[in-house]
Write a protein that binds this DNA or RNA. Structure first.
Lengths: 193, 193
DNA sequence: CGCCAACCTGAACGATCGTTCAAGCTTTAT
DNA sequence: ATAAAGCTTGAACGATCGTTCAGGTTGGCG
């Protein structure tokens, strides 16, 4: 019976997403999970252990979303929807606009070794998913056949980071939706090597 | 004689840049400045006070660099150099690739109110500087006259964030220099409203 | 020389950090 | 019914956090 474990991970995700790895204390987690320290330590071993499960779960969900884009018949169109969606969330969840992975990466120098390596793996995994989107869009004729696939994947990941980060600095995230159009448009633009 | 004060700010910048606001402890600063707690508190009032001076100084330097780009005769060409430069720094200063402002912003929910407001001011100030670059490039004929200036400034800030963030995840930052070319190229690309 | 102002020193403060553990409780198997 | 196994509890640990302050040191001026 690992259902409450799943629930704990989701509640912990909320806290880590809002406060970051360094900013989150065990007492924040004890409150959020409504569990005493011993329970958390017996279930997850440490703050780092709990965070690793949170990061894995988060990466899995995001990866799934991007792969769903890749597996659709109109990847470029679905990519638009995927990029647009976080701009439409209500204010109460404003911190969720920023990607948890990018947020964690900002604390790089202070992270335990285990978190660092998992973080790099997550970034690589999502980059691969973006690359799959590019490949699929190309094979569906939505992109030119001579697009540099690997660079485009890196670039797309960069645009994802830029949009999510910018969205946290403006009053209305939805006011950035023009940027999604530019991303899709620039994807078909020049890629001179 | 406020020269040692300037020096303290630079040394503190190193630490905050590497470890972030939350990750930096007063004892890290005491070591870096080679000063005892009382001296630091008499000079800067608090950790927050010291950080605010660091942030102001950092913003001023970056703002100056961007305005120098704007004030040149070939802004777009100078923008290329400006974006390219951080990709060429040696490994020992790898953390300096990531923008201190973006890094700090990741800890948003945990920052003291004073840091939050100063951070927003810094972001707005740099956005303005980017806008000046766009305007100047337009007036010099390097950009089309119908470019949406405000959007382009936000977008350019986003590209800056993307590049600096991506550069921290690859083994050789210089391998991303193609991205600078794409940024300059996309700046002249489609801006359909 | 004597004096004041400014700076520096470093021990110490209370609060909070991640973590541990002995004891109690609940569940499952025999 | 009873024992074994595992989860939960909450007080407590040592370490570290940002900060304070009484006392020492230094430099310039009358």
């Amino acid at each position: 019976m690992s259902y409450p474990r799943e629930q704990s991970i989701q509640q912990a995700t909320e806290v880590f997403w809002l406060k970051g790895y360094l900013g989150t204390g065990m007492r924040d987690l004890q409150t959020a999970l409504d569990k005493r320290p011993g329970s958390i330590y017996s279930a997850f071993g440490s703050k780092e252990g709990l965070y690793l499960e949170v990061l894995n779960h988060y990466t899995g969900v995001l990866h799934g979303q991007i792969m769903a884009v890749a597996n659709s018949d109109t990847p470029l169109q679905q990519l638009r929807e995927f990029l647009l969606f976080p701009l439409t969330v209500e204010d109460s969840a404003a911190h969720k606009i920023q990607c948890l992975i990018v947020k964690t990466q900002a604390d790089w120098a202070e992270l335990p070794e285990g978190v660092k390596s998992e973080l790099q793996a997550a970034i690589a995994q999502l980059r691969e998913a973006f690359q799959t989107v590019i490949l699929k869009a190309r094979s569906m004729g939505e992109l030119a056949t001579d697009i540099p696939v690997e660079r485009a994947a890196v670039w797309l990941q960069g645009q994802f980071i830029a949009m999510r980060t910018l969205a946290t600095t403006v009053e209305t995230p939805a006011s950035l939706s023009w940027m999604v159009d530019k991303i899709v448009s620039d994807l078909s633009g020049e890629w001179a090597q």
